[in-house]
């Protein structure tokens, strides 16, 4: 009759706790545990061999892992900066529109409505060196007479992936920054005009400080997104050519399923998550500072 002792609220919350434990906490604990074993999917009995930190040592001393790690950070940096600049530009333009602003706002969100897998397929087709639209257009315009091996050259492949990422997610920045612009009080801007600012100075000293928190929110969201980039890369290049576009999570996926080394893959995943946490904390700090700067009341 132990149940009797639980209070009504606890009793009512119990199912939720049970479900959460079953689908989140237990798998998490299990994966964490397995990162300390040489677990292979093909050899279930290896799950019970405890090897301590050996997987982590392997991961951290593995050049392939660090290359993928570095490439992910590179992708993150380039894509986020490009998205922010483009999103800012888009938001400023849409904010200037006097007619059809709603329509533009909706149109701006279209890329976000596609699943990343579809975006991957779409860009895989666009960048195809034989039948792709990009090469076709470049050749028709006479800009080049050769087919550019977009997805076959290692550097171009990463660039292609960045373009796909940017295309699909610039809207996140554009929409958040536009929200900032719409919420921004008009009169500090007018005061700046009267105080002698050119349009650029007005933007630099008044508008931008106000928009910064919104940009950092978008940064936080997108850094989490890009740090776990998987689907677009998987479809477009599958980490190739010759692993030149291998990112953290494609590497984790390959280690786990192609090589079947689940324990090692889980160790990688936990290291990778650290990366996300570091970025999130960094952007949250920036966000808090920027909010304090403008005396935001939200």
């Amino acid at each position: 009759m132990k149940l009797k002792k639980l209070s009504a609220p606890a009793l009512l919350l119990l199912p939720a706790f049970v479900v959460l434990a079953a689908v989140i906490v237990l798998p998490l604990l299990f994966s964490f545990y397995s990162s300390f074993t040489p677990f292979r999917l093909t050899k279930p009995e290896t799950l019970w061999v405890f090897v301590g930190l050996r997987n982590y040592v392997t991961v951290l001393s593995n050049a392939e892992f660090w290359v993928a790690f570095g490439r992910t950070v590179l992708l993150l940096t380039v894509a986020l900066n490009a998205e922010m600049l483009l999103g800012l530009g888009l938001a400023l333009l849409v904010n200037k529109a006097t007619h059809g602003q709603r329509l533009l706002r909706t149109a701006m969100m279209f890329p976000m409505m596609f699943s990343p897998v579809l975006v991957g397929f779409q860009f895989k087709f666009l960048f195809n060196d034989n039948i792709g639209f990009v090469n076709n257009a470049l050749q028709s315009l006479g800009l080049t007479d050769q087919a550019i091996p977009w997805l076959i050259d290692g550097n171009l492949a990463l660039l292609s992936i960045i373009i796909a990422e940017v295309w699909s997610s610039t809207a996140v920045f554009a929409i958040l920054i536009l929200a900032g612009l719409l919420a921004m009080p008009k009169d500090p801007v007018e005061a700046a005009h009267v105080d002698g600012c050119t349009p650029w100075q007005t933007f630099r000293y008044v508008t931008w400080p106000y928009l910064m928190p919104f940009a950092f929110i978008a940064m936080t969201i997108r850094s989490l997104d890009v740090a776990r980039a998987y689907d677009i890369v998987k479809i477009m290049t599958d980490g190739g050519p010759a692993k030149r576009t291998e990112l953290l999570w494609t590497l984790v996926g390959r280690t786990a399923y192609a090589d079947a080394r689940m324990g090692l893959a889980n160790a990688m995943a936990y290291v990778a998550i650290l990366l996300s946490i570091v970025f999130t904390v960094y952007f949250f700090r920036k966000l808090a500072a920027a909010r304090q700067q403008i005396g935001a009341e939200w």
Binding site: D187, E190, C197, Q293
Partner: peptide
């Protein structure tokens, strides 16, 4: 900016991210 005027707005229109001194000195800085 080309009219050499100052305006005091009904809603203050201060720059929220600047201190009082920076607010007052902004036009001179520009």
């Amino acid at each position: 900016r080309a009219r050499n005027i100052s305006m005091v707005f009904q809603s203050y229109a201060l720059y929220p991210h600047m201190t009082v001194a920076e607010n007052m000195g902004f036009s001179l800085k520009i």
